[in-house]
């Protein structure tokens, strides 16, 4: 779990919080093929507007804050309000402009397409 904590300068990009909530790294699956890198991150209970995805200087930051509605007296709590945050290094071959993200059923899916120049090409011999 690579969760970088010394990112004080980036604190602004995170949605405002009223009190300290625990920060945990979401679990991810990462795949790669010839066209793109595909990243799935489990962020259950996070609303779309509470998710931040930033790519800067070869660093990809995903962050999402979960605020659960109060459910009365908790008799058992195995999960609570939390900030999911994780940072990845992004290879230069990724076309930052074309990255797209979607959120469905608590899973954030990131498509990171590779730039045309970096795709494997077959060179014909004449």
């Amino acid at each position: 779990m690579s969760e970088t904590t010394n990112i004080t300068t980036k604190e602004k990009t995170v949605p405002e919080r009223s009190r300290e909530i625990p920060v945990i790294a979401p679990v991810v699956d990462i795949f790669e093929n010839d066209d793109e890198m595909l990243l799935y991150a489990d962020m259950p209970g996070v609303a779309k507007e509470d998710i931040t995805v930033n790519i800067d200087n070869g660093e990809l930051l995903i962050s999402g804050v979960r605020r659960l509605p109060p459910s009365g007296t908790a008799t058992r709590e195995e999960f609570g309000d939390v900030e999911y945050r994780r940072i990845f290094s992004v290879h230069q071959t990724i076309d930052v402009e074309k990255v797209n993200a979607e959120l469905k059923d608590g899973v954030l899916t990131l498509h990171l397409p590779k730039s045309e120049a970096s795709k494997p090409r077959q060179i014909e011999i004449h």
Binding site: D42, M43, P44, S71, G72, T75, E78, F79
Partner: peptide
């Protein structure tokens, strides 16, 4: 999957974390 159980005067609420699972 992890779950939370809460109770109010009127009802019990159980929430389960099941990301990426089809309803």
């Amino acid at each position: 999957p992890t779950l939370d159980i809460g109770a109010t005067e009127k009802e019990y609420a159980i929430s389960v974390e099941v990301p990426g699972i089809d309803q």
